[in-house]
Design a protein around this nucleic acid. Structure first.
Length: 543
RNA sequence: GCCCCCGUAGCUCAGUCCGGAUCAGAGCAGCGGACUUCUAUUCCGAAGGUCGGAGGUUCGAAUCCUCCCGGGGGCGCCA
Protein backbone atom coordinates (compact mmCIF):
# COMPACT_ATOMS: atom_id res chain seq x y z
CA UNK A 1 0.00 0.00 0.00
CA UNK A 2 1.34 3.39 -0.94
CA UNK A 3 2.29 5.41 2.08
CA UNK A 4 0.11 8.26 0.84
CA UNK A 5 -2.97 6.08 1.07
CA UNK A 6 -2.12 5.32 4.67
CA UNK A 7 -1.77 9.02 5.46
CA UNK A 8 -4.86 10.02 3.51
CA UNK A 9 -7.03 7.51 5.32
CA UNK A 10 -5.72 8.60 8.69
CA UNK A 11 -6.34 12.24 7.87
CA UNK A 12 -9.84 11.54 6.66
CA UNK A 13 -10.66 9.69 9.82
CA UNK A 14 -9.10 12.40 11.97
CA UNK A 15 -11.11 15.08 10.18
CA UNK A 16 -14.21 13.04 10.86
CA UNK A 17 -13.31 12.82 14.55
CA UNK A 18 -13.05 16.58 14.58
CA UNK A 19 -16.53 16.88 13.14
CA UNK A 20 -15.50 18.34 9.82
CA UNK A 21 -18.43 17.98 7.47
CA UNK A 22 -18.41 17.50 4.59
CA UNK A 23 -15.08 15.76 4.38
CA UNK A 24 -12.84 17.06 1.61
CA UNK A 25 -13.11 15.05 -1.60
CA UNK A 26 -9.43 15.02 -2.28
CA UNK A 27 -6.63 15.14 0.26
CA UNK A 28 -3.27 15.87 -1.28
CA UNK A 29 -0.11 14.50 0.24
CA UNK A 30 3.07 16.04 -1.06
CA UNK A 31 6.73 15.65 -0.49
CA UNK A 32 7.93 19.05 0.79
CA UNK A 33 10.69 20.73 -1.15
CA UNK A 34 12.44 21.48 2.08
CA UNK A 35 13.47 18.28 3.92
CA UNK A 36 13.19 20.09 7.23
CA UNK A 37 9.47 20.08 6.66
CA UNK A 38 9.36 16.34 7.05
CA UNK A 39 8.90 13.39 4.72
CA UNK A 40 5.34 14.06 3.70
CA UNK A 41 3.03 17.00 4.10
CA UNK A 42 -0.56 18.01 3.52
CA UNK A 43 -2.29 21.34 3.09
CA UNK A 44 -5.65 19.84 4.02
CA UNK A 45 -5.98 22.13 7.03
CA UNK A 46 -5.74 25.10 4.69
CA UNK A 47 -8.24 23.75 2.23
CA UNK A 48 -10.74 22.46 4.82
CA UNK A 49 -10.57 25.37 7.19
CA UNK A 50 -13.78 26.86 5.88
CA UNK A 51 -15.76 23.60 6.16
CA UNK A 52 -14.41 23.14 9.67
CA UNK A 53 -15.25 26.64 10.71
CA UNK A 54 -11.81 27.16 12.17
CA UNK A 55 -8.71 28.94 11.09
CA UNK A 56 -6.21 26.76 9.21
CA UNK A 57 -3.50 26.82 11.82
CA UNK A 58 -5.91 25.81 14.61
CA UNK A 59 -7.37 23.01 12.51
CA UNK A 60 -3.86 21.80 11.74
CA UNK A 61 -3.03 21.68 15.44
CA UNK A 62 -6.18 19.73 16.17
CA UNK A 63 -5.39 17.26 13.38
CA UNK A 64 -1.89 16.81 14.64
CA UNK A 65 -3.24 16.12 18.09
CA UNK A 66 -5.55 13.36 16.90
CA UNK A 67 -2.86 11.80 14.73
CA UNK A 68 -0.18 11.91 17.40
CA UNK A 69 -2.51 10.08 19.78
CA UNK A 70 -2.58 7.07 17.45
CA UNK A 71 0.07 7.49 14.79
CA UNK A 72 -0.48 5.95 11.33
CA UNK A 73 1.94 3.25 10.21
CA UNK A 74 5.55 4.47 9.79
CA UNK A 75 4.73 7.90 11.27
CA UNK A 76 7.07 9.07 14.02
CA UNK A 77 6.03 12.70 14.37
CA UNK A 78 3.31 15.07 13.24
CA UNK A 79 4.02 18.79 13.19
CA UNK A 80 2.19 21.91 12.18
CA UNK A 81 4.11 24.59 10.35
CA UNK A 82 3.60 27.85 8.53
CA UNK A 83 0.00 28.79 7.83
CA UNK A 84 -1.26 25.31 8.77
CA UNK A 85 0.67 22.68 6.86
CA UNK A 86 0.61 19.34 8.63
CA UNK A 87 3.98 17.67 8.28
CA UNK A 88 4.74 14.02 8.85
CA UNK A 89 8.03 12.50 9.82
CA UNK A 90 8.30 8.84 8.97
CA UNK A 91 10.56 5.99 9.88
CA UNK A 92 12.67 4.66 7.02
CA UNK A 93 10.45 1.60 7.03
CA UNK A 94 8.12 3.30 4.57
CA UNK A 95 10.96 3.31 2.05
CA UNK A 96 11.87 -0.29 2.75
CA UNK A 97 8.27 -1.16 1.92
CA UNK A 98 8.72 0.60 -1.42
CA UNK A 99 11.57 -1.73 -2.26
CA UNK A 100 9.41 -4.74 -1.47
CA UNK A 101 6.74 -3.36 -3.80
CA UNK A 102 9.23 -2.74 -6.59
CA UNK A 103 10.87 -6.13 -6.59
CA UNK A 104 7.60 -7.97 -6.07
CA UNK A 105 6.10 -6.23 -9.08
CA UNK A 106 9.22 -6.59 -11.21
CA UNK A 107 9.88 -4.72 -14.41
CA UNK A 108 6.66 -5.98 -15.97
CA UNK A 109 4.52 -4.85 -13.09
CA UNK A 110 6.13 -1.88 -11.41
CA UNK A 111 4.79 1.52 -12.45
CA UNK A 112 1.94 0.06 -14.44
CA UNK A 113 -1.53 1.56 -14.22
CA UNK A 114 -5.08 0.61 -15.00
CA UNK A 115 -6.46 4.02 -15.94
CA UNK A 116 -6.63 2.92 -19.56
CA UNK A 117 -8.22 -0.47 -19.02
CA UNK A 118 -10.94 -0.97 -21.58
CA UNK A 119 -9.89 2.09 -23.57
CA UNK A 120 -8.39 1.80 -27.00
CA UNK A 121 -6.05 4.49 -28.24
CA UNK A 122 -4.78 4.95 -31.74
CA UNK A 123 -1.55 6.84 -32.00
CA UNK A 124 -0.93 8.12 -35.51
CA UNK A 125 2.53 9.45 -36.14
CA UNK A 126 5.23 10.08 -38.73
CA UNK A 127 2.77 9.82 -41.65
CA UNK A 128 5.31 11.38 -44.00
CA UNK A 129 4.57 11.64 -47.69
CA UNK A 130 5.98 8.68 -49.62
CA UNK A 131 8.04 11.01 -51.75
CA UNK A 132 11.45 10.48 -50.22
CA UNK A 133 13.39 9.26 -47.22
CA UNK A 134 12.57 10.44 -43.70
CA UNK A 135 14.78 13.26 -42.55
CA UNK A 136 16.22 14.07 -39.18
CA UNK A 137 13.22 16.19 -38.27
CA UNK A 138 10.88 13.22 -38.67
CA UNK A 139 12.94 11.42 -36.06
CA UNK A 140 11.51 13.52 -33.29
CA UNK A 141 7.88 12.76 -34.11
CA UNK A 142 8.78 9.11 -34.66
CA UNK A 143 10.49 8.61 -31.31
CA UNK A 144 7.93 10.73 -29.52
CA UNK A 145 4.94 8.89 -30.99
CA UNK A 146 6.41 5.50 -30.25
CA UNK A 147 7.29 6.40 -26.69
CA UNK A 148 3.82 7.83 -26.20
CA UNK A 149 2.37 4.54 -27.39
CA UNK A 150 4.55 2.72 -24.86
CA UNK A 151 3.29 5.01 -22.11
CA UNK A 152 -0.33 4.39 -23.04
CA UNK A 153 0.32 0.67 -22.97
CA UNK A 154 1.91 0.84 -19.56
CA UNK A 155 -1.14 2.73 -18.32
CA UNK A 156 -3.40 -0.06 -19.44
CA UNK A 157 -4.63 1.18 -22.81
CA UNK A 158 -4.99 -0.98 -25.85
CA UNK A 159 -2.75 0.79 -28.34
CA UNK A 160 -2.51 0.82 -32.12
CA UNK A 161 0.37 2.53 -33.88
CA UNK A 162 -0.66 3.74 -37.28
CA UNK A 163 1.12 5.37 -40.19
CA UNK A 164 -1.08 7.27 -42.63
CA UNK A 165 0.25 7.15 -46.17
CA UNK A 166 -0.54 10.14 -48.33
CA UNK A 167 -0.27 8.06 -51.46
CA UNK A 168 -2.19 10.32 -53.80
CA UNK A 169 -2.31 13.94 -54.75
CA UNK A 170 -0.13 16.59 -56.25
CA UNK A 171 3.02 15.85 -54.24
CA UNK A 172 3.01 12.20 -55.27
CA UNK A 173 2.65 13.20 -58.91
CA UNK A 174 5.49 15.69 -58.68
CA UNK A 175 7.67 13.07 -57.10
CA UNK A 176 6.87 10.58 -59.85
CA UNK A 177 7.46 13.22 -62.52
CA UNK A 178 10.80 14.10 -60.94
CA UNK A 179 11.89 10.47 -60.99
CA UNK A 180 10.77 10.07 -64.57
CA UNK A 181 12.56 13.25 -65.61
CA UNK A 182 15.87 12.21 -64.13
CA UNK A 183 15.54 8.70 -65.53
CA UNK A 184 14.71 10.10 -68.96
CA UNK A 185 17.37 12.77 -68.87
CA UNK A 186 14.94 15.71 -69.01
CA UNK A 187 14.60 18.65 -66.66
CA UNK A 188 12.96 18.16 -63.29
CA UNK A 189 9.57 19.90 -63.42
CA UNK A 190 8.97 23.15 -61.61
CA UNK A 191 8.31 22.53 -57.93
CA UNK A 192 9.66 19.02 -58.31
CA UNK A 193 12.06 17.13 -56.08
CA UNK A 194 15.78 17.69 -56.37
CA UNK A 195 17.26 15.63 -53.57
CA UNK A 196 20.28 13.44 -54.03
CA UNK A 197 18.07 10.42 -53.47
CA UNK A 198 16.03 11.27 -56.59
CA UNK A 199 19.08 10.66 -58.74
CA UNK A 200 19.92 7.46 -56.90
CA UNK A 201 16.43 6.11 -57.08
CA UNK A 202 15.95 7.10 -60.71
CA UNK A 203 19.07 5.10 -61.51
CA UNK A 204 17.64 2.09 -59.68
CA UNK A 205 14.26 2.28 -61.39
CA UNK A 206 13.81 -0.56 -63.88
CA UNK A 207 13.06 0.20 -67.50
CA UNK A 208 9.33 0.53 -68.10
CA UNK A 209 8.40 0.82 -64.42
CA UNK A 210 5.56 3.15 -63.53
CA UNK A 211 7.43 5.95 -61.72
CA UNK A 212 4.51 6.64 -59.44
CA UNK A 213 3.97 3.06 -58.29
CA UNK A 214 7.62 2.20 -58.24
CA UNK A 215 8.61 5.41 -56.49
CA UNK A 216 5.89 4.97 -53.92
CA UNK A 217 7.07 1.49 -53.03
CA UNK A 218 10.67 2.62 -52.98
CA UNK A 219 10.00 5.52 -50.62
CA UNK A 220 7.81 3.48 -48.33
CA UNK A 221 10.35 0.71 -48.05
CA UNK A 222 13.01 3.25 -47.25
CA UNK A 223 10.93 4.88 -44.54
CA UNK A 224 9.94 1.57 -43.04
CA UNK A 225 13.51 0.42 -42.87
CA UNK A 226 14.79 3.40 -40.94
CA UNK A 227 11.86 3.27 -38.54
CA UNK A 228 12.61 -0.35 -37.84
CA UNK A 229 16.22 0.52 -37.24
CA UNK A 230 14.88 2.79 -34.50
CA UNK A 231 12.86 -0.11 -33.13
CA UNK A 232 9.64 1.55 -34.21
CA UNK A 233 7.10 -0.85 -35.60
CA UNK A 234 3.69 0.16 -36.85
CA UNK A 235 0.68 -2.05 -36.41
CA UNK A 236 -0.93 -0.58 -39.43
CA UNK A 237 -0.11 1.40 -42.55
CA UNK A 238 -3.21 3.14 -43.76
CA UNK A 239 -3.43 4.17 -47.39
CA UNK A 240 -5.19 7.34 -48.43
CA UNK A 241 -5.88 5.83 -51.83
CA UNK A 242 -7.66 2.90 -50.28
CA UNK A 243 -10.35 5.24 -49.02
CA UNK A 244 -11.06 6.48 -52.52
CA UNK A 245 -11.39 2.91 -53.73
CA UNK A 246 -13.55 1.83 -50.82
CA UNK A 247 -15.89 4.78 -51.13
CA UNK A 248 -14.97 6.00 -47.64
CA UNK A 249 -14.33 9.50 -48.95
CA UNK A 250 -17.76 9.63 -50.59
CA UNK A 251 -19.32 8.38 -47.38
CA UNK A 252 -17.62 11.06 -45.36
CA UNK A 253 -18.86 13.65 -47.79
CA UNK A 254 -22.44 12.45 -47.63
CA UNK A 255 -22.25 12.40 -43.84
CA UNK A 256 -21.12 15.99 -43.85
CA UNK A 257 -23.91 16.90 -46.25
CA UNK A 258 -26.55 15.26 -44.12
CA UNK A 259 -25.26 17.22 -41.14
CA UNK A 260 -25.53 20.38 -43.23
CA UNK A 261 -21.85 20.95 -42.53
CA UNK A 262 -20.98 21.87 -46.13
CA UNK A 263 -22.08 24.34 -48.76
CA UNK A 264 -21.21 25.24 -52.31
CA UNK A 265 -19.65 28.51 -53.33
CA UNK A 266 -17.56 29.62 -56.29
CA UNK A 267 -17.91 26.14 -57.73
CA UNK A 268 -16.18 24.58 -54.74
CA UNK A 269 -17.55 22.68 -51.75
CA UNK A 270 -16.74 24.18 -48.38
CA UNK A 271 -16.74 22.85 -44.85
CA UNK A 272 -18.44 25.13 -42.34
CA UNK A 273 -15.45 24.83 -40.04
CA UNK A 274 -15.90 28.35 -38.69
CA UNK A 275 -19.06 27.08 -36.97
CA UNK A 276 -16.82 25.04 -34.68
CA UNK A 277 -13.94 27.29 -33.78
CA UNK A 278 -11.90 27.50 -36.96
CA UNK A 279 -11.17 31.03 -38.11
CA UNK A 280 -12.54 30.42 -41.61
CA UNK A 281 -14.32 27.84 -43.71
CA UNK A 282 -12.24 25.36 -45.68
CA UNK A 283 -12.48 23.92 -49.15
CA UNK A 284 -13.13 20.18 -49.39
CA UNK A 285 -13.64 19.86 -53.13
CA UNK A 286 -11.98 22.29 -55.48
CA UNK A 287 -13.82 23.91 -58.39
CA UNK A 288 -11.98 21.52 -60.70
CA UNK A 289 -13.72 18.68 -58.77
CA UNK A 290 -10.45 17.48 -57.21
CA UNK A 291 -10.38 16.87 -53.48
CA UNK A 292 -8.19 18.97 -51.30
CA UNK A 293 -6.03 17.06 -48.82
CA UNK A 294 -8.68 17.86 -46.21
CA UNK A 295 -11.54 15.68 -47.41
CA UNK A 296 -9.64 12.38 -47.36
CA UNK A 297 -8.20 13.45 -44.04
CA UNK A 298 -11.70 13.90 -42.64
CA UNK A 299 -12.67 10.53 -44.02
CA UNK A 300 -9.58 9.05 -42.46
CA UNK A 301 -10.32 10.40 -39.01
CA UNK A 302 -13.93 9.34 -39.31
CA UNK A 303 -12.63 5.85 -40.04
CA UNK A 304 -10.22 5.91 -37.11
CA UNK A 305 -13.06 6.76 -34.76
CA UNK A 306 -14.71 3.49 -35.81
CA UNK A 307 -11.58 1.68 -34.72
CA UNK A 308 -10.54 3.34 -31.44
CA UNK A 309 -12.01 5.22 -28.49
CA UNK A 310 -9.31 7.87 -28.40
CA UNK A 311 -7.23 9.28 -31.21
CA UNK A 312 -3.84 10.84 -30.74
CA UNK A 313 -2.12 12.52 -33.67
CA UNK A 314 1.47 13.60 -33.62
CA UNK A 315 1.97 16.54 -35.95
CA UNK A 316 4.86 18.86 -36.61
CA UNK A 317 4.67 22.51 -35.66
CA UNK A 318 4.01 23.43 -39.28
CA UNK A 319 0.63 21.69 -39.02
CA UNK A 320 -0.68 23.33 -35.89
CA UNK A 321 -3.04 25.44 -37.97
CA UNK A 322 -4.90 22.30 -39.05
CA UNK A 323 -5.91 21.27 -35.57
CA UNK A 324 -8.90 23.58 -35.45
CA UNK A 325 -10.29 22.47 -38.80
CA UNK A 326 -9.95 18.78 -38.00
CA UNK A 327 -11.61 19.22 -34.63
CA UNK A 328 -14.27 21.18 -36.37
CA UNK A 329 -14.88 18.48 -38.96
CA UNK A 330 -15.07 15.79 -36.28
CA UNK A 331 -17.55 17.84 -34.34
CA UNK A 332 -19.65 18.25 -37.46
CA UNK A 333 -19.67 14.46 -37.75
CA UNK A 334 -20.89 14.14 -34.19
CA UNK A 335 -17.64 13.21 -32.45
CA UNK A 336 -16.38 14.73 -29.26
CA UNK A 337 -13.37 16.79 -30.33
CA UNK A 338 -11.67 16.12 -27.01
CA UNK A 339 -11.38 12.49 -28.09
CA UNK A 340 -9.04 13.59 -30.87
CA UNK A 341 -5.90 14.92 -29.30
CA UNK A 342 -3.19 16.46 -31.39
CA UNK A 343 0.32 16.63 -30.01
CA UNK A 344 2.49 19.20 -31.76
CA UNK A 345 6.23 18.69 -31.89
CA UNK A 346 8.30 21.81 -32.35
CA UNK A 347 11.02 21.94 -34.94
CA UNK A 348 14.37 20.21 -34.84
CA UNK A 349 17.42 21.92 -36.21
CA UNK A 350 20.56 19.98 -36.87
CA UNK A 351 24.13 20.85 -36.22
CA UNK A 352 27.15 19.11 -37.51
CA UNK A 353 30.60 20.49 -36.93
CA UNK A 354 29.09 23.68 -35.54
CA UNK A 355 27.29 24.37 -38.79
CA UNK A 356 23.54 24.43 -38.87
CA UNK A 357 22.07 22.15 -41.52
CA UNK A 358 18.74 23.13 -43.02
CA UNK A 359 16.03 20.54 -43.50
CA UNK A 360 14.07 20.86 -46.69
CA UNK A 361 13.01 17.97 -48.80
CA UNK A 362 12.25 20.10 -51.82
CA UNK A 363 15.57 21.85 -52.14
CA UNK A 364 17.26 18.53 -51.65
CA UNK A 365 19.33 19.75 -48.75
CA UNK A 366 18.59 17.41 -45.92
CA UNK A 367 20.09 15.02 -43.47
CA UNK A 368 18.35 11.72 -43.68
CA UNK A 369 17.15 10.09 -40.50
CA UNK A 370 19.08 7.01 -41.57
CA UNK A 371 22.29 9.04 -41.45
CA UNK A 372 21.47 10.20 -37.95
CA UNK A 373 20.92 6.64 -36.78
CA UNK A 374 24.10 5.49 -38.49
CA UNK A 375 26.14 8.23 -36.94
CA UNK A 376 24.90 8.21 -33.37
CA UNK A 377 23.23 4.83 -32.97
CA UNK A 378 19.68 3.90 -32.10
CA UNK A 379 19.92 4.41 -28.36
CA UNK A 380 21.55 7.82 -28.49
CA UNK A 381 19.16 8.97 -31.21
CA UNK A 382 16.07 7.93 -29.29
CA UNK A 383 17.28 9.23 -25.95
CA UNK A 384 18.25 12.56 -27.46
CA UNK A 385 14.98 13.02 -29.32
CA UNK A 386 13.19 12.34 -26.03
CA UNK A 387 15.40 14.54 -23.90
CA UNK A 388 13.35 17.71 -24.15
CA UNK A 389 9.72 18.68 -24.01
CA UNK A 390 8.34 18.61 -27.55
CA UNK A 391 7.09 22.13 -26.86
CA UNK A 392 10.66 23.35 -27.04
CA UNK A 393 12.60 23.59 -30.24
CA UNK A 394 15.54 21.27 -30.34
CA UNK A 395 19.01 21.60 -31.73
CA UNK A 396 20.32 18.13 -32.39
CA UNK A 397 24.08 18.18 -32.50
CA UNK A 398 25.21 15.10 -34.39
CA UNK A 399 28.82 15.36 -33.31
CA UNK A 400 27.89 15.71 -29.68
CA UNK A 401 25.34 12.91 -29.63
CA UNK A 402 27.71 10.60 -31.47
CA UNK A 403 30.49 11.23 -29.00
CA UNK A 404 30.67 8.70 -26.22
CA UNK A 405 32.17 11.09 -23.72
CA UNK A 406 30.71 13.33 -21.03
CA UNK A 407 28.00 15.72 -22.17
CA UNK A 408 25.98 12.82 -23.47
CA UNK A 409 23.37 11.78 -20.92
CA UNK A 410 22.37 8.54 -22.60
CA UNK A 411 25.67 6.91 -21.68
CA UNK A 412 25.44 8.17 -18.13
CA UNK A 413 22.12 6.40 -17.69
CA UNK A 414 23.09 3.24 -19.51
CA UNK A 415 26.31 3.05 -17.57
CA UNK A 416 24.33 2.90 -14.35
CA UNK A 417 22.65 -0.23 -15.65
CA UNK A 418 25.95 -1.71 -16.81
CA UNK A 419 27.39 -1.15 -13.35
CA UNK A 420 24.49 -2.97 -11.75
CA UNK A 421 24.90 -5.95 -14.03
CA UNK A 422 28.57 -5.90 -13.22
CA UNK A 423 27.83 -6.05 -9.50
CA UNK A 424 25.45 -8.93 -10.05
CA UNK A 425 28.07 -10.80 -12.10
CA UNK A 426 30.70 -10.23 -9.41
CA UNK A 427 28.34 -11.40 -6.73
CA UNK A 428 27.61 -14.56 -8.67
CA UNK A 429 31.34 -15.16 -9.17
CA UNK A 430 31.81 -14.81 -5.43
CA UNK A 431 29.10 -17.38 -4.88
CA UNK A 432 26.79 -14.82 -3.37
CA UNK A 433 23.19 -15.38 -4.40
CA UNK A 434 20.38 -13.18 -3.23
CA UNK A 435 18.53 -14.81 -0.40
CA UNK A 436 14.72 -14.59 -0.50
CA UNK A 437 13.53 -11.07 0.10
CA UNK A 438 11.46 -11.91 3.17
CA UNK A 439 14.59 -13.25 4.85
CA UNK A 440 16.55 -10.06 4.25
CA UNK A 441 16.73 -7.27 6.80
CA UNK A 442 15.99 -4.20 4.70
CA UNK A 443 16.13 -1.98 7.78
CA UNK A 444 19.89 -2.03 7.27
CA UNK A 445 19.32 0.36 4.38
CA UNK A 446 19.68 3.69 6.12
CA UNK A 447 22.44 5.50 4.26
CA UNK A 448 21.38 8.78 2.66
CA UNK A 449 22.36 7.36 -0.73
CA UNK A 450 20.21 4.32 -0.19
CA UNK A 451 17.24 6.33 0.98
CA UNK A 452 17.55 8.68 -1.98
CA UNK A 453 17.36 5.73 -4.36
CA UNK A 454 14.27 4.40 -2.64
CA UNK A 455 12.58 7.78 -2.80
CA UNK A 456 13.35 7.98 -6.50
CA UNK A 457 11.90 4.53 -7.11
CA UNK A 458 8.76 5.53 -5.29
CA UNK A 459 8.27 8.38 -7.74
CA UNK A 460 8.30 6.29 -10.91
CA UNK A 461 4.63 5.26 -10.93
CA UNK A 462 3.59 8.91 -10.57
CA UNK A 463 6.02 9.95 -13.26
CA UNK A 464 4.69 7.37 -15.69
CA UNK A 465 1.09 8.38 -15.07
CA UNK A 466 1.86 12.06 -15.42
CA UNK A 467 3.96 11.54 -18.54
CA UNK A 468 1.08 9.62 -20.11
CA UNK A 469 -1.59 12.11 -19.07
CA UNK A 470 0.45 15.06 -20.27
CA UNK A 471 1.74 13.15 -23.28
CA UNK A 472 5.24 14.06 -22.21
CA UNK A 473 7.73 11.19 -22.44
CA UNK A 474 10.57 13.56 -21.62
CA UNK A 475 9.43 13.40 -18.02
CA UNK A 476 10.53 9.78 -18.02
CA UNK A 477 13.88 10.86 -19.42
CA UNK A 478 14.25 13.42 -16.66
CA UNK A 479 13.34 10.84 -14.05
CA UNK A 480 15.73 8.19 -15.27
CA UNK A 481 18.60 10.68 -15.39
CA UNK A 482 17.91 11.48 -11.76
CA UNK A 483 17.73 7.83 -10.80
CA UNK A 484 21.05 7.19 -12.55
CA UNK A 485 22.60 10.12 -10.72
CA UNK A 486 21.42 8.75 -7.39
CA UNK A 487 22.76 5.36 -8.28
CA UNK A 488 26.21 6.62 -9.24
CA UNK A 489 26.36 8.43 -5.91
CA UNK A 490 25.36 5.27 -4.10
CA UNK A 491 27.90 3.25 -6.05
CA UNK A 492 30.63 5.61 -5.01
CA UNK A 493 29.76 5.72 -1.33
CA UNK A 494 28.27 2.32 -0.60
CA UNK A 495 29.95 -0.91 -1.53
CA UNK A 496 27.64 -3.81 -2.04
CA UNK A 497 30.14 -6.46 -1.09
CA UNK A 498 33.75 -6.90 -0.12
CA UNK A 499 35.92 -6.26 2.89
CA UNK A 500 34.10 -4.96 5.89
CA UNK A 501 30.68 -5.32 4.33
CA UNK A 502 28.50 -7.42 6.53
CA UNK A 503 26.69 -10.29 4.83
CA UNK A 504 23.29 -8.96 5.84
CA UNK A 505 24.05 -5.52 4.45
CA UNK A 506 25.30 -7.07 1.22
CA UNK A 507 22.02 -8.89 0.86
CA UNK A 508 19.98 -5.77 1.50
CA UNK A 509 22.06 -3.82 -1.01
CA UNK A 510 21.81 -6.55 -3.63
CA UNK A 511 18.04 -6.22 -3.40
CA UNK A 512 18.27 -2.45 -3.52
CA UNK A 513 20.39 -2.69 -6.64
CA UNK A 514 17.83 -5.05 -8.13
CA UNK A 515 15.13 -2.48 -7.43
CA UNK A 516 17.16 0.20 -9.18
CA UNK A 517 17.73 -2.12 -12.10
CA UNK A 518 13.98 -2.57 -12.42
CA UNK A 519 13.48 1.19 -12.39
CA UNK A 520 16.10 1.70 -15.09
CA UNK A 521 14.69 -1.08 -17.25
CA UNK A 522 11.14 0.22 -16.99
CA UNK A 523 12.09 3.79 -17.83
CA UNK A 524 14.50 2.93 -20.62
CA UNK A 525 11.95 0.61 -22.16
CA UNK A 526 9.40 3.43 -22.18
CA UNK A 527 11.95 5.46 -24.10
CA UNK A 528 12.83 2.57 -26.38
CA UNK A 529 16.44 2.58 -25.25
CA UNK A 530 18.32 -0.60 -24.40
CA UNK A 531 19.73 -1.41 -20.97
CA UNK A 532 23.20 -2.77 -21.70
CA UNK A 533 24.86 -5.44 -19.58
CA UNK A 534 28.23 -3.86 -19.91
CA UNK A 535 29.91 -0.80 -21.38
CA UNK A 536 33.57 -0.22 -21.85
CA UNK A 537 35.53 2.74 -23.01
CA UNK A 538 36.61 2.20 -26.56
CA UNK A 539 40.31 2.63 -25.84
CA UNK A 540 40.18 0.04 -23.06
CA UNK A 541 38.86 -2.63 -25.32
CA UNK A 542 36.62 -5.36 -23.95
CA UNK A 543 37.91 -7.00 -20.81
C1' G B 1 -3.12 41.51 -38.66
C1' C B 2 -4.52 36.55 -36.53
C1' C B 3 -2.96 31.54 -34.42
C1' C B 4 0.75 28.03 -31.94
C1' C B 5 5.54 27.21 -29.23
C1' C B 6 9.58 29.31 -26.59
C1' G B 7 12.10 33.25 -23.16
C1' U B 8 14.53 30.32 -15.97
C1' A B 9 22.64 30.20 -14.09
C1' G B 10 27.96 31.68 -19.22
C1' C B 11 25.53 27.57 -22.65
C1' U B 12 21.51 23.64 -23.20
C1' C B 13 17.20 22.77 -20.60
C1' A B 14 13.65 20.63 -16.38
C1' G B 15 9.92 22.83 -13.21
C1' U B 16 4.32 26.12 -15.44
C1' C B 17 -1.39 22.02 -17.03
C1' C B 18 -3.39 21.54 -11.06
C1' G B 19 -0.25 28.55 -7.31
C1' G B 20 2.33 27.16 -1.55
C1' A B 21 6.69 26.99 3.12
C1' U B 22 12.46 33.66 3.53
C1' C B 23 17.68 27.38 -0.37
C1' A B 24 14.06 28.13 -7.92
C1' G B 25 16.79 22.61 -9.92
C1' A B 26 19.95 19.60 -13.42
C1' G B 27 23.58 18.80 -17.21
C1' C B 28 27.58 21.04 -19.78
C1' A B 29 31.54 24.73 -19.74
C1' G B 30 34.98 26.99 -16.08
C1' C B 31 37.41 26.50 -10.86
C1' G B 32 39.14 23.09 -6.68
C1' G B 33 39.29 18.05 -4.94
C1' A B 34 38.65 12.08 -4.89
C1' C B 35 40.97 5.86 -8.02
C1' U B 36 45.84 -0.12 -4.35
C1' U B 37 38.31 -0.62 -4.42
C1' C B 38 31.80 -4.20 -7.20
C1' U B 39 33.90 -0.54 -14.37
C1' A B 40 36.73 7.10 -12.72
C1' U B 41 31.80 6.96 -19.23
C1' U B 42 32.04 7.87 -11.88
C1' C B 43 31.89 10.91 -7.32
C1' C B 44 32.44 15.42 -3.99
C1' G B 45 32.93 20.84 -3.21
C1' A B 46 32.74 26.03 -4.20
C1' A B 47 30.86 29.50 -7.71
C1' G B 48 27.03 30.98 -10.85
C1' G B 49 19.55 33.79 -10.93
C1' U B 50 15.84 41.17 -11.32
C1' C B 51 12.53 33.02 -13.54
C1' G B 52 12.09 38.52 -20.72
C1' G B 53 9.33 43.34 -18.87
C1' A B 54 5.08 45.86 -16.59
C1' G B 55 0.52 45.64 -14.28
C1' G B 56 -3.35 42.50 -11.92
C1' U B 57 -5.68 38.29 -8.90
C1' U B 58 -4.17 35.95 -4.02
C1' C B 59 -2.67 35.22 2.74
C1' G B 60 1.05 33.37 -1.08
C1' A B 61 2.95 33.79 -8.30
C1' A B 62 8.50 30.97 -12.37
C1' U B 63 3.32 28.77 -12.20
C1' C B 64 -3.17 32.03 -13.05
C1' C B 65 -5.14 36.83 -15.97
C1' U B 66 -4.04 41.32 -19.19
C1' C B 67 -0.71 44.13 -22.04
C1' C B 68 4.16 44.73 -24.03
C1' C B 69 9.22 43.12 -25.85
C1' G B 70 12.36 39.34 -28.15
C1' G B 71 13.14 34.41 -30.95
C1' G B 72 10.91 30.35 -33.96
C1' G B 73 6.79 28.34 -36.76
C1' G B 74 1.98 28.70 -39.27
C1' C B 75 -1.94 31.45 -41.63
C1' G B 76 -3.64 28.48 -50.12
C1' C B 77 -9.33 25.78 -54.20
C1' C B 78 -0.64 22.93 -51.74
C1' A B 79 0.02 18.41 -48.50
Amino acid sequence: MDVRDILTESLRSALGDLGVDPLPTGITIERPANPEHGDWSTNVALTSAKAAGRNPRELGMALAGVLEASPPMHVTAVEVAGPGFVNFRLANSWLHDVLVDVVSAGSDGWATHTVGTGLSVMVEFVSANPTGPLHAGHGRGACYGDSLARLYQRCGHEVTREFYINDRGAQMQLFADSLAAVAGGTDIPEGGYHGHYIREWAAEMPEGADPLEWGYERALADQRRVLESLDIHFDSWFSERSMIDSGAVEEAMSDLRSQDAVYEDDGAIWLRSSDHGDDKDRVLVKSDTEFTYLLPDVAYHRDKFQRADRLVNVWGADHHGYVARMHSAMQALGHDPSELQVAITQMVSLQRGGEEVRLSKRTGEMVELAEVVDEVGTDAARFTYLLLSVDSQQTFDLDLVASQVNENPVFYVQYAHARIDSIVRRAAEAGMERTPLDEVDLSLLGHQRELALLRALHELPDTVLRACRERAPHQVTTWVRELAASFHGFYHDCRVMGDGIDEGLSQARLWLVEGVRIGLVVALDLLGVTAPEEMWREEDGVG
